[in-house]
Amino acid sequence: MLDNKISFTLNGKMVEFIGDPLRRLIDTLREDFNLIGVKEGCGEGECGACSVIKDGKLVTSCIIPMGAVNGADIWTIEGIRETELGKIIIEAFADGGAVQCGFCIPGMVLASYVLLKDKENPSELEIREAISGNICRCTGYDLIVESIRLADERRRNA
């Protein structure tokens, strides 16, 4: 049986958490690791502001207990922004005017990253599906969708 020591990879580095295994991943990331790009919106796994990438898949960190991340590979916006594809997406978001208040954007970038890392030239529907769990109350989504397309174009022409 595992005890209260949880080891996992965070943005490419091995880290350890010791504490209540029911503590939420989002609280550990923000408060213990100071990764405040992870935002809390609804706290119920619905809005996507707290999105992180766990073992290559997009998940909401507000409903994941620390006890479930032993051995996991976790990436937050702080790690993804240092990757080549991450940089391309973030630049495209800036150039495309995808950002207004910015609260949903870390989650949007991670959702875009998960989509684009496996897929070149996604259709508009695929883009919209990929970000369908990330709620933005400012933009109406169109500029975000166009920016993801721009990131894909730049990545393919790079």
Partner: peptide
């Protein structure tokens, strides 16, 4: 069911 991240969990 739900959205992408929920379905992944």
């Amino acid at each position: 069911m739900g959205a992408v991240s929920l379905r992944n969990t």
